[in-house]
């Protein structure tokens, strides 16, 4: 069920990328897309009724039902990359505003 929600979020992001003209709104759309993707990645590893995949003194056998830890590791990397890209995109937005005095892509003149 949550996977449909994640895919819907991704589609909202793509819709934003296709329709928005404002640089900041484009960056927000990109982030919505990434959040949807990250939720999807997490949902792939989810096991109904599973516990955190950490061996403790109580949970110390492999017979227990654990959730898949790999997607959680992947999503961490994905989030970090997303933050980096967003920071860079915002820096570009700032420079664009300095250059053209507007955030609207249509109003930016020249090449």
């Amino acid at each position: 069920m949550i996977q449909y929600f994640a895919i819907a979020l991704m589609l909202v992001g793509v819709y934003g990328l296709l329709t928005q003209k404002n640089v900041i709104k484009l960056i927000v759309s990109l982030n919505i897309f990434e959040v949807g993707l990250n939720v999807f990645i997490i949902s792939v590893g989810y096991v109904s009724g599973g516990i955190a995949p950490i061996l403790t003194s109580q949970n110390n056998t492999s017979a227990l039902l654990y959730v898949d830890p790999l997607p959680q590791a992947l999503v961490l990397t994905s989030i970090v990359i997303g933050v980096g890209v967003t920071a860079l995109a915002l820096a570009f937005a700032r420079r664009l505003h300095n250059q053209y005095g507007t955030y609207n892509l249509d109003e930016m003149e020249g090449e």
Binding site: M10, L30, Q99
Partner: peptide
């Protein structure tokens, strides 16, 4: 080369692509 508009365009398309 200060072509921020094109780099921004590349960034958006590239990020969506790698997504």
């Amino acid at each position: 080369d200060k072509g921020f508009k094109h780099s921004f365009n590349y960034l958006v398309v590239g990020t969506l692509g790698s997504g």
